[in-house]
Design a protein around this nucleic acid. Structure first.
Ligand SMILES: NC(=O)c1ccc[n+]([C@@H]2O[C@H](COP(=O)([O-])OP(=O)(O)OC[C@H]3O[C@@H](n4cnc5c(N)ncnc54)[C@H](O)[C@@H]3O)[C@@H](O)[C@H]2O)c1
Ligand SMILES: NC(=O)c1ccc[n+]([C@@H]2O[C@H](COP(=O)([O-])OP(=O)(O)OC[C@H]3O[C@@H](n4cnc5c(N)ncnc54)[C@H](O)[C@@H]3O)[C@@H](O)[C@H]2O)c1
Lengths: 227, 227
DNA sequence: GCCTCACTGTGAATAGAATCACAGTTGCAG
DNA sequence: CTGCAACTGTGATTCTATTCACAGTGAGGC
């Protein structure tokens, strides 16, 4: 093997780590890293140092390096990080390097907005199918995606190879819905319904409570006003 | 003052604290606490202990007590917490005991879903007005709310006494938009656009990145699969 | 080929959040 | 009125995340 090839391998191929513990907070920053890497790649940047990279993402360089180090070693000491290479690696780590099918539950106002959103495809997610309890909606096609009745869940989900689910239904029966979805083989649920869901066995649940965000902001704005 | 009255005051009136430091994580749990208190109140529960309360919210009793203690003392040692009283106090702490006006920027699919959502009013927020750059949308009324051109921002926001803003526009010019909004007197921004915003001076920014949530879930589901 | 410079990856130190554990209180039973 | 049982609020502790700081390294200049 020539020195060039060897050197290239050393500097280009990230040493991924089949590692132990990765903090949840690190995971949350990962998508921000990937987004910045994508922009840099579009701008034709080949290498970037932790200092500038961190500046673009809005974290400290130390934190960036620490986060990355929990997945392996990526950086070339003098040149910094290879933008393209590392973007690919991030996608691989997050499992978004190939498109995954997602199912939507609840084709209301929010559900339809999600269905017509293009951004998910760019990030490796495809809402392949929708479900609703409303008989007026079942059988119809929304933004190209068919809406099924909840009863068809167990047969339809495997058919579309659905790995993740988004809940935009109603608070009533939310836990039961989550349990059914998990039982049908879904291992990750994104929940928009403002009600607590106890994660079913073997299934991750992530909540997005928009009102809660507003409340947090309200508190902060208020608190500052009184200081 | 009779003993009864004195006892009642001691047990019912929360001792609020004009306190020092409140952790951000505590603030985020506050809305969950309030939601549960509301449900309990609807169910006619008068008092509840930290143990059961924590169970309903999904935190440990110790954490609940610690969180509450950073705002003052609420609990009656033997009877627990007064559900109604504490619900009111939570609202007051978060500044949601009276309705606040919110402005929406970007009347696209997501913006319209937010406009027709009833849940915000229940939580003390009222989207009073909308803005868009699209001339087809300016002047129209969406779910009862008028859509203005961005240029009218400086005059319209004070008119509606807007305290907070929601951004559901596009990535282009996002920072400039945030800066303008903040300059018009808004101190808190909820941003749905997947692009980093540097908080303008004196303004809090909270981001909700739905794709990032999916990416996090994808990572978790993947990671578990390989364990 | 060697030297220099500035960068990464990571132990050590610090800051911060969650949990433990209990002193002190209070409602209530008798 | 007294004693008991059980709860809160909080100091002390543990656990986790972030930042510091530097040894070791590689690219590029000469
Ligand atoms: N619209 C928003 O902007 C917004 C904002 C924050 C939170 N949310 C939450 O997101 C959820 C959806 O909001 P929305 O405005 O689209 O509500 P919506 O009432 O317009 O739509 C809900 C849809 O879910 C369906 N549904 C009800 N139970 C179901 C079940 N068990 N399985 C499948 N489908 C079911 C209904 O038939 C309806 O079509 C609500 O829980 C709401 O609180 C919405
Ligand atoms: N729709 C979704 O489900 C979804 C999900 C996640 C994130 N988002 C993000 O939310 C934002 C809105 O999504 P959408 O689907 O409604 O997009 P959209 O393209 O349907 O609507 C965007 C609206 O914002 C307006 N706009 C653009 N620039 C503006 C500005 N500077 N000031 C005011 N208005 C402006 C446009 O005219 C348009 O009406 C996007 O940035 C998108 O990435 C949307």
């Amino acid at each position: 093997m020539s020195d060039q090839v060897e050197a290239a391998m050393r500097s280009e191929a990230p040493q991924m780590r089949a590692d132990k513990h990765v903090s949840l907070q690190t995971v949350e920053r990962l998508s921000a890293y990937r987004r910045v890497l994508e922009e840099l790649d579009r701008d034709g940047v080949e290498y970037i140092h932790s200092q500038q990279f961190a500046g673009l993402v809005g974290v400290t360089p130390a934190q960036l390096r620490r986060d990355l180090s929990s997945f392996g070693t990526f950086g070339n000491i003098s040149r910094g990080y290879n933008v393209y290479q590392m973007g690919r690696t991030m996608s691989r780590i997050m499992g978004t390097d190939s498109t995954q099918s997602v199912a939507l539950f609840g084709v209301g106002d929010l559900g339809r907005a999600l269905l017509s959103y293009r951004g998910f495809e760019e990030r490796g997610f495809h809402i392949a199918v929708a479900f609703d309890v409303d008989q007026d909606k079942v059988g119809r096609v929304f933004a190209g995606r068919r809406c099924y009745a909840l009863e068809e869940l167990a047969t339809v989900l495997p058919e579309y190879e659905v790995r993740m689910a988004v809940l935009a239904s109603r608070p009533e029966g939310l836990q039961a819905l989550a349990d059914r979805v998990a039982a049908a083989g879904v291992h990750a649920i994104l929940n928009f319904v403002p009600k607590r869901v106890t994660p079913p066995e073997g299934c991750f649940v992530e909540n997005t409570d928009i009102s809660a965000k507003l409340e947090k902001l309200s508190f902060l704005a208020h608190a500052q006003a009184t200081v």
